[in-house]
Simulated scan of single mutants.
Amino acid sequence: MVSGLGLPGVRRTGLSGAMFLFCPSCGNGLIMEEGQRCHHFACNTCPYVHNVTCKVTNRKYPKLKEVDDVLGDAAAWENVDSTKKPCPKCEHPRAYFMQLQIRSADEPMTTFYKCCSPQCGHS
């Protein structure tokens, strides 16, 4: 019996905290379905159905990975070329640019611009 679910004969396996329930008659995985009055576990291949008699909750909050700065720090902009591209923020007439391959090799390179004005620095 699965603890807290009241499912006699149902096998339960866990993989990194997830719960998988299996049909006691055919061994296939059970799916959660919403009925008219309650939720139940049902088998796709045989007529086995078992109503859920208590509240089942499981919350997992995945750890988010840190986002890397694609452009690098201020040192990445030290030896880059500039072009006659006006800044949309301060209207400075020139901008630094660099091209990076941030997608797969069959995609074109991405061009990044940064305002040449030390007061603005808009990118």
Rank of each mutant, 00 (worst) to 15 (best):
V2D: 00
G4N: 07
G4A: 08
L5R: 01
L5K: 05
L5V: 05
L7R: 00
L7C: 06
P8V: 15
P8H: 10
P8C: 09
G9L: 02
T13M: 09
G14R: 15
G14Q: 15
G17A: 02
A18M: 07
A18S: 08
F20Q: 06
C23H: 00
P24E: 04
N28W: 00
N28E: 13
G29W: 04
G29K: 12
I31P: 03
M32R: 10
M32D: 05
E33A: 10
E33N: 12
G35E: 01
G35Q: 03
G35M: 02
Q36I: 09
R37N: 13
R37T: 13
C38R: 10
C38H: 05
C38F: 03
C38G: 04
H39K: 08
H40T: 01
H40C: 09
F41A: 05
A42M: 03
C43P: 09
C43G: 09
N44K: 11
N44F: 07
T45S: 15
C46N: 02
P47F: 02
Y48S: 02
H50W: 01
N51P: 14
V52T: 05
V52M: 05
V52Y: 01
T53M: 10
C54F: 01
C54S: 14
T57H: 07
T57A: 14
T57K: 07
N58W: 05
N58T: 11
R59Q: 12
R59K: 15
R59Y: 12
K60D: 14
Y61F: 11
Y61K: 15
P62D: 06
P62H: 03
K63G: 08
K65P: 11
K65V: 12
K65M: 12
E66W: 10
V67T: 12
V67H: 11
D68Y: 06
D69Q: 14
G72S: 07
D73M: 05
D73L: 08
A76Q: 04
W77G: 07
W77S: 12
E78D: 14
E78Q: 15
N79M: 11
N79I: 04
D81C: 07
D81F: 05
D81K: 15
D81A: 12
T83L: 06
K85V: 15
K85Y: 12
P86R: 05
P86A: 13
P86H: 03
C87E: 02
C87I: 00
P88E: 14
P88L: 13
P88G: 15
E91A: 03
H92L: 03
A95Q: 00
A95Y: 01
Y96T: 06
F97K: 01
Q99L: 07
Q99G: 13
I102V: 15
S104W: 05
S104H: 09
A105W: 11
E107R: 14
P108C: 08
P108F: 05
P108Q: 12
M109S: 14
M109P: 08
T110M: 06
T110S: 06
T110L: 02
T111Q: 04
F112D: 02
F112R: 06
Y113A: 06
P118G: 02
Q119P: 08
C120R: 04
C120E: 03
G121W: 01
H122W: 09
S123F: 07
